[in-house]
């Protein structure tokens, strides 16, 4: 069992996260799908770091985490603002992007 197995695992998690973004109407849930995708990427970075015996992968994963934290803060703020404006966080409601 090598670190490669974790890469497979990460691929599965990434696909699940992507499916969540597509299928869930609740903005918070879709957002959690995005988080899962980020974490899957992190797992790949750490696994490769392990495989190559370099620490840079971990550093990258760390940066991803920091950026994800910042992104979560802003994203959740946007969700709250959306909720205040529309009394809902359903992704189907703000159909103002309609052409």
């Amino acid at each position: 069992m090598t670190a490669m197995s974790f890469v497979y695992l990460a691929a599965i998690l990434f696909a699940i996260g992507a499916a969540a973004v597509l299928l869930r109407r609740n903005a918070i849930v879709a957002f959690m799908g995005v988080e899962l995708m980020l974490n899957a990427a992190n797992l790949v970075l750490v696994a490769f770091s392990r495989m190559y015996g370099e620490l840079d992968g971990q550093i990258m994963a760390f940066f991803v985490m920091v950026v994800a934290a910042a992104e979560v803060v802003v994203g959740l703020a946007i969700i709250i603002a959306l909720f205040r404006a529309r009394q809902t966080i359903s992704l189907d409601e703000p159909a103002e992007l309609k052409g």
Partner: peptide, 15 residues
């Protein structure tokens, strides 16, 4: 847990 197992205890804690 996976991070710790992959030899990245610091990241595991941060996670």
């Amino acid at each position: 847990a996976a991070y710790v197992g992959l030899g990245a205890p610091f990241l595991g804690v941060v996670q």
